[in-house]
Amino acid sequence: MVHRESLRTEDTDGSANERITIHLSRFDPSTDTQPRVETIELPLDEPVSVMVLLQRLHAIDPQRACRTSMCFKGACGACLIRVDGKNVLGCSTIVDPGETITLEPHSGFEHIRDLVVDFSRPRSSVEEAE
């Protein structure tokens, strides 16, 4: 399933026809037995952090669950996430227009819903976060 969603970006100079494709992991434990993938295309005309992408995805559909807190310093770990198979800080990972990326929950903690994990329940024997 591919959604094409129009979104205002902060620079509306008319030249914004670059896009980014996101394979977003969705999981609702009350209806799903395992995660499914939602594919979304968003307009993107400048490099942004994964955290900015998450804010935009959540603003388009508030039912896409993701933590929205951040320290704005790359230090707190509220935005821990798995991008293209690697555990990273979402605020510190930059994506470019034209890219295709996969967003999944961080694998170091028990999964709750969509991209949300339970930081108080670390999983044993997983690779360390960046």
Binding site: D28, P29, S30, A65, R113
Partner: peptide
């Protein structure tokens, strides 16, 4: 919003 479920943000 939809009925309450897990992580009802």
């Amino acid at each position: 919003t939809s009925p309450a479920g897990s992580f009802h943000q």
